[in-house]
Amino acid sequence: MALLSVEDLEVRFFTRRATIHAVNGISFDLDAGETLGVVGESGCGKSVSSLAMLGILPKTGRITRGEVRFGDRDLVKLKDADLREIRGRDIGMVFQDPMTSLNPVLKVGDQVTEVLRKHLDMDKDGARREAVAVLDRVGIPHASERVYDYPHQFSGGMRQRVMIAMAIACRPKILIADEPTTALDVTIQAQILDLLKGLVKEEGMGLILITHDLGVVAGICERTHVMYAGRFVETAPTNELFDRPRHPYTLGLLRSVPRLDASQKEKLIPIPGAPPDLSILREGCSFAPRCPYATDESRERTPMLEGIDGPMHRVACWNPVPDAEVATVASSSLEASGS
């Protein structure tokens, strides 16, 4: 059985002027030891869905449908107090900005210790020893001394390590990392991704990695979901997704980012237009207005995720990109990897 199972999750924001359809029915399973990627652009609902799963939506947001099964419980139905127990103990979370996610007036050691004492009923000395151990585990040099430092005495990369330490201190079964490296420099990003990879491998955690960076997903995730306008539009094993993207949006994304290893200076092919206004929920595929393959059918009926090229590769599209077209992308990347 899956560790975490999300079924038809729908999240809306109710503001004075409009209702925003942030997440419109997403479903997925996460297994132990698995790394799952969720890619999409800002506003596609990737962050909102993870906040919703943990019950920490901003106050105008509500889960309007669906369930989030964790063990034998549905997190959507849990009371706040029970959710608080689960957050931090069974499910850890790492956010993008390590500057604002730590309390600036508390020593780093105390912040990690607090998590341990709250969730695991450890005594003070035990928790302190464990805090040093976990900080050491995430690669903070001289952890036994650094526990007495304040967050501002750490660099951005080190702070993100502290955040990860807090998230994994109670040995959670699941770690959700929301753009964990976006605020960091590339050389530091490489260190952090490496750390996350190691943690998944050794602790057997399930990792959900939310990012806008296709490169990050390619390097670390086994399965990837591509999200657009609150829906998964394509989901596949990562290799398969990059080799044979079948949704026009996925293909568009891959063609619009310059690659460091591109074989020549080819022109980028941007996706025309801009993402849709989520306050208006229209029938039909939400990518249709920007899609070169759109037909009348795509504008009228909303496509569901359905298996294509086998059950593992699913795509929500009436006119998936033909194989021939995909091949040109695949061959150019093949050429590049050979060089």
Partner: peptide, 15 residues
């Protein structure tokens, strides 16, 4: 930041 993003999504609609 994710919370901010959620709020930004919210704001962007209040044209």
């Amino acid at each position: 930041m994710s919370v901010a993003e959620a709020q930004a999504a919210e704001l962007s609609l209040e044209r």
